[in-house]
Design a protein around this nucleic acid. Structure first.
Lengths: 195, 195
DNA sequence: TTATTTAGCTAACAAATGTTAGGTAGGAGG
DNA sequence: CCTCCTACCTAACATTTGTTAGCTAAATAA
């Protein structure tokens, strides 16, 4: 993934936007709110970004980059399926916890991206979930995973992972890695004691 | 729960609002959009509801009623813990699938409810999750469930359940009950084959 | 020095927003 | 018949919105 180098000011704008878009929602955050958070005037933002929606897009697309970058090497590795899925889960949760505002925006505000970018977003997101799905399928083929519908199992995994953005706190009891570990534990082996 | 009888027109307004609030988001849906969906003028809505936010609140609070009504009898029953949790999961998913628009609004748009109702919403939602949490705690005390943090396990369950609102389609392959059944299966016993 | 770019400013814009005031037509109840 | 209520209407309102035009001052490059 090409690392686009970005000016200092631009990343300040992104940081403030991520925080406010997460806290209040994209539409409820005015350009003037962003400016105030940055100590500048609303119109000055347009020296850096062409539009408010461009900022949203930059956040969402950048977050997608993070997700891909973090699980691709694991998906392409030769790990045993169960270990591979566990590591992907931990990595995915890691992206969420390291980018808590951006990922909340990624999950919640994509509706406000207009075409054609919205389709691009949807495609990337499908492609991403497809990587998880392929691992789930492999597990089923190997007779390692139960034969629930492959799409259903994948969605259930993604559900449990993605909702973490609503409650994760950096100062919580569990570290990001522990959260991923426990989630993988529950999803793969269940809550019920077997021994 | 007191069943508030509501005029025909009022429930039409709610139905249209739920649909549009889900599709476009609360803020992106104007009062004029709602009116157009109802074949009336924007100002006429105010003969039925005092404000746009009142409509949002009615949807959210009504949805909370549905959730409570559907799991309370199960939670109060004498069922074995594992069966009880399974039935609660099925019931919860049932509320989501039967009220797909309303529940999406419930989960996604509560940020736009202003105080003091917003606190009331938060309290009810905590109380509701507390019912699940109590069952999880009981399972841990009975040495039936693994000793993950009780709050963590509960959140993981709620996560997997609540995200269904993003992908459930009435014409999908699985019925609501099957979805609940499978979710309970994965959450309680895991994806990994053990026999 | 001079020219150009960068990063900000003030002022203003058209459009859209939620809401209110005040009116009308029709039905119900006395 | 008269009164009241319901359910809608038209017209207007004050705000807020994203965005643009055009300017200035400082930094940078030639």
């Amino acid at each position: 993934m090409a690392v686009k180098s970005i000016s200092e000011r631009k990343s300040q704008i992104l940081a403030v936007s991520e925080r406010l878009f997460n806290q209040k929602g994209y539409l409820a955050t005015s350009v003037r709110d962003l400016a105030e958070g940055l100590g500048m005037e609303a119109a000055s933002l347009y020296s850096h970004y062409r539009s408010k929606e461009d900022i949203l897009w930059t956040i969402a697309d950048g977050c997608a980059d993070e997700f891909f970058d973090s699980i691709t090497p694991i998906a392409e590795s030769q790990l045993h399926t169960q270990k591979k899925l566990t590591d992907m889960i931990i990595a995915h949760v890691g992206v969420i916890t390291r980018n808590i505002d951006a990922s909340a925006v990624f999950f919640r505000e994509w509706r406000h991206i207009s075409e054609p970018r919205r389709s691009a977003y949807a495609e990337r997101r499908n492609a991403y979930e497809g990587i998880f799905r392929a691992v789930v399928r492999k597990g089923i083929e190997e007779n390692l995973f139960k034969n629930y519908d492959e799409g259903f199992s994948t969605r259930t995994i993604m559900s449990a992972l993605n909702w973490t953005h609503t409650w994760y706190r950096a100062d919580g009891e569990l570290s990001s890695e522990e959260i991923g570990q426990h989630l993988a534990g529950i999803l793969l082996n269940g809550l019920v004691r077997t021994v």
